Amino acid sequence: MRVDRKLWTVAAVCVAVVAGATGCSKGEEKAADPFTGLTADAIADKAVETTKGATAFRMHGKGNTDGEDVSVDFSVDDKGNCKGSMQAAKGGKADIVGTGGTTYMKGDDAFWKSTGGDEGASAEESGAMSALLKGRWLKMPSEAGAEGPGAFCDLKQIVKDMDEETPRKGMTREADADVDGRSAAVLSKKDTAKGETVTFYVAKDAAKPYILRVVTTGGKDPGTVDLGDFDKPVTAAAPPADQTVDMAELMKGAS
């Protein structure tokens, strides 16, 4: 159940105006470009720093890791709260809730059969795990910096990975576009060695130029992810104890 942190590096779009800003109807002037005088690299730096400072956001999109498609949709804040869902590469869906240093995952039958047990587990072992967890939440500790479902609740690690993975040198500014009704500056970077192009869209907002969308085409990890609901608190509640299975207890039993 490895979480593809590179899923975050991905995006694509069209053309519009920031909601609430000056319109583009006949006779009206376009809103001023908040990035006038800045290079594409400088805009990228500004966007990354602004997004890193968000206290919460939602991420949703699709990516490819190790040749298999994965999709996620989750919200996370800086207090360790998160909730959302993920679609497994080999089928099935799981809901995720994290709060108080613990992450809970509830998958459907297809999800546990395709991901359950250790790597290389037999169909019988995966089936047994699916039966044990049917309709129940798997309780897991949310360890800082760890991979797995707990990574969804680690905003600090997510923005750290974002900082390290986002190209900020040799960017090119393309024609502006639209992301869900918000005007965005479009920046791209082609990596010939990796055979991939990363394009991301930055809100044309002088105060908060957040990254709104990232698209990676070609290479080993193509995909698209959108970011939104910036600084919106995440409300997450742990499921009832009688509906959970403690992973630590499972591990003890296995050993």
Rank of each mutant, 00 (worst) to 15 (best):
V76D: 09
V76S: 06
D78W: 05
D78G: 14
K79H: 11
G80K: 03
N81G: 06
N81C: 08
C82R: 00
C82S: 12
K83L: 12
K83C: 09
K83P: 07
K83D: 10
K83W: 10
G84H: 03
S85R: 14
M86C: 04
Q87M: 12
Q87P: 00
A88Y: 06
A89I: 10
K90V: 09
G91K: 01
G92K: 01
K93Y: 10
K93S: 12
K93A: 15
D95V: 06
I96V: 15
V97K: 04
V97I: 15
G98I: 09
G98L: 02
T99A: 14
G100H: 02
G100R: 00
G100E: 10
T102M: 11
T103H: 02
M105C: 06
K106T: 13
G107T: 11
G107K: 01
G107A: 03
G107Y: 09
D108E: 05
D108W: 01
D109W: 02
D109F: 02
D109H: 00
A110T: 15
F111S: 04
F111W: 13
W112C: 08
W112T: 15
K113R: 15
S114F: 05
T115G: 01
T115S: 13
T115Q: 15
G117F: 12
A121P: 01
A121Q: 03
S122W: 05
S122Q: 08
S122F: 05
E124S: 12
E124D: 14
E124L: 07
E124K: 14
E125Q: 13
S126Q: 13
G127M: 06
G127T: 11
A128S: 13
A128L: 13
